[in-house]
């Protein structure tokens, strides 16, 4: 018996190894190029710890007396903007989501139109939406609410459409076979199956919107952001710190609230 010839085994073929090396080289090149364009100035880098310490010393002690005087109303306004904006988004996202679900609407053109609306809502940043509506409605909470609404359509509509597309087709077939009209099939077939996902998305988006509506005030769209902007411009650092802390607390509370409700409905 002659010994069996040595059989070679390698995880990658030669061309695969070459390709992997090329990809690695590409990443390295991209990293070095981007580092050069960032233009790090070493003096500023060495200085950073001192600057941070300085900032904190200005923020301390916090001006808690400013909360009832200047922050509380703005914070409530922020919550109102977030809530009304989310409701506005839902009213607009339900029909658009239905249009986008290809198991409900069988016209690819309408599916495509819905996707276009959803994508354009999401691709524009909330600060840009805010600038747009501040220009239209003037500065204030109305611009903020509409901004939050338009920004959220994409998120809510896309996830609602996906929930509708994942519905079990069996009950739909059964209701169709019983001669139910379209709207009844939607109410009793699609909606009960998609509802938990829908309410989950609604709560999650409200949670995100509480954070977003704290920011859009920086460009004049109402709420706590406007107060923050003023305090920053006037270098009232001990007020800035109270504002940041209260935003932090509200965001945490919103998160806890949403988690508690989600547990109950799902």
């Amino acid at each position: 018996m002659s010994p069996s010839p040595l059989r070679k085994w390698e995880r990658f073929t030669f061309s695969e190894r070459l390709a992997r090396f090329a990809v690695f080289l590409g990443f390295a090149a991209a990293l070095s190029i981007s580092l050069r364009s960032v233009q790090i100035i070493p003096e500023f880098l060495y200085d950073a710890p001192t600057q941070v310490a300085d900032l904190f010393s200005r923020m301390w002690p916090m001006d808690f007396a400013y909360y009832p005087a200047g922050i509380h109303d703005a914070m409530m306004e922020t919550l109102h903007i977030a809530t009304l904006g989310t409701l506005l988004a839902i009213v607009m996202a339900i029909p658009i989501g239905i249009l986008g679900a290809n198991n409900i609407v069988h016209f690819p053109l309408l599916n495509w139109l819905s996707k276009l609306i959803l994508v354009s809502s999401r691709s524009v940043n909330s600060l840009v939406w805010a600038l747009l509506f501040v220009a239209v409605f003037g500065p204030g909470p109305l611009a903020g609410t509409v901004c939050i609404g338009f920004r959220s359509i994409g998120f809510v509509g896309k996830l609602f459409a996906e929930a509708l597309e994942e519905v079990d087709p069996g009950p739909i077939e059964a209701l169709t076979a019983s001669g139910a009209p379209w709207f009844s099939v939607f109410l009793k077939g699609y909606w009960p199956q998609a509802a938990p996902a829908f309410w989950g998305v609604f709560l999650f988006r409200w949670d995100i919107n509480v954070r977003e509506s704290a920011v859009i005030g920086l460009v004049g769209a109402g709420g706590i952001g406007m107060v923050l902007d003023t305090a920053l411009n006037l270098f009232f650092w001990n007020r800035v710190s109270v504002i940041l802390l209260s935003i932090f607390v509200v965001v945490i509370l919103a998160e806890l609230f949403v988690t508690a409700i989600r547990k109950r409905i799902i």
Partner: peptide, 28 residues
């Protein structure tokens, strides 16, 4: 029509599933 996989609306009550048989007669 009766189905192999029953095709009930799982999240609705038994009563509502039975009443679904009337959806062809009852306005939405």
């Amino acid at each position: 029509m009766v189905f192999q996989e029953f095709n009930l609306v799982e999240r609705l009550s038994v009563m509502e599933n039975v009443l679904c048989g009337r959806l062809g007669y009852v306005p939405s």
